[in-house]
Nucleic acid binder design. Sequence first.
DNA 1: CGTTCTTTTGACGAGAGTCAAGACTGGTGG
DNA 2: CCACCAGTCTTGACTCTCGTCAAAAGAACG
Lengths: 250, 250
Amino acid sequence: MSLADPAPLQPFLHRLLSRSELSTAERQAILDLPFTPAQIAVNRDFVRLRERAEEAFFIVEGLVGRFGQNREGIRQTTAIYLPGDMVGLRSIAGAETNTALQALAVTTVLRVPHVALRNAARSFPALAEAFWRECVVDAAILAEWIISIGRRDARARLAHLFCEVACRAGRSVPASGARFPFPATQVHIGEMTGLTSVHVNRSLQGLRRDGLVDLRERQIHLLDWDRLAAVGDFSPEYLSLECGDRIWSR
Amino acid sequence: MSLADPAPLQPFLHRLLSRSELSTAERQAILDLPFTPAQIAVNRDFVRLRERAEEAFFIVEGLVGRFGQNREGIRQTTAIYLPGDMVGLRSIAGAETNTALQALAVTTVLRVPHVALRNAARSFPALAEAFWRECVVDAAILAEWIISIGRRDARARLAHLFCEVACRAGRSVPASGARFPFPATQVHIGEMTGLTSVHVNRSLQGLRRDGLVDLRERQIHLLDWDRLAAVGDFSPEYLSLECGDRIWSR
DNA sequence: CGTTCTTTTGACGAGAGTCAAGACTGGTGG
DNA sequence: CCACCAGTCTTGACTCTCGTCAAAAGAACG
């Protein structure tokens, strides 16, 4: 998407509409949000620990990780954000102090001031509810990461991660053979899965050898979706991808 | 708290007020919420996986865990709820399909229908924001659990867990010597920390031997808070316990 | 084309899991 | 009041996944 696009925030609206119903005025309020495009260099920590961001970041292109760290400074990624995600919606409602943000690739974002989002949410309760709903999905993903890191071995963790990324990137359950960008390095993947990069490397080789998935040229190649999902113990419901049967209609 | 109490939901209101400002009408709406008291037997799974609860549960007494499981059915607790917590506020805004709820002790709850909470949130946007804010804190706790399980060893995980529980139970940073109920078994603690109960046992012995913390008679005994927090790599900001300098005033 | 990042490999060590059995505890019912 | 039983805690011996350390080989990028 080009930044000269007449409505750069259209994809954000589109995301919200996939889970929430919004009136014309509410939609317009989203499109009217102020924003500043920005480019972030790879591996740049653009929000540091204990720092309070004053804006949210809509990801246009690239990959962003939220992370914390232990005493020794070893990082643990707690969430990743793909193109189409809005980072930092949470902070509209409450402080977010113990995590930082890192660009895992050259990333293009739209910076949207928290005040503007907060004002929109207060002017239109339906928007507040839509934002809240996005946060609920985020929390479901966090919970699934806990399950993965706590109770799955390296192979399953990686498989689960790739399944999640595949579904989130395509906004639906993908088919075998699909490929899509995932510009994280093996070090980054280790930080996501609670493993070392060395062990990520060896486990990835196993998945590749078994014809499940391949990571090449910063892309995930799904070789056998069904077996990958089985190995990763993955079922996509928690991502709330379906928008047809909305249970929480107004 | 007795169930004959004139305003059993007062503690819930109190919790909300610790993080949000609410008008008289908004406060009254909370106190007027319909509820049904209930007692849950220990180890009862009162919401099963893939089941959709129709109500939230305010914890009066006891301990509740939210959990998922891997392919083999090994459980991983993703969140715990102490007296004073409202379980399932998230589900007001969105579905919560991949986790179940389990009583880790005999637990007294107030069941509050989701519809009632949703109506309150829609009648009073400030309530929606207050609920949302609680969910944001929950998410911060989830992220911290990911960091713990992903990057801390058994000893540090346990120390961090006890620190968190101590702060949440007392709503403030405790002092050495404090003790408070924590009716989870070592099996439960293993499910929280991604460890086996055997390893929990051995690690607990280490913490006890070193004079950091002791777990006896379903109570946590804080022997040396400072060293425990150091071992557990714990800092309490993420719990948003402070209510003095509210940054998100209305 | 060298420099830096990333991936890959090997050897070794350690933290945590597994399996199994015994000790302790509290609750229940005869 | 005591015996029994199920759940919990504890311990030991052994295994194995994953981490550590180190170095080399490839890729990417100015």
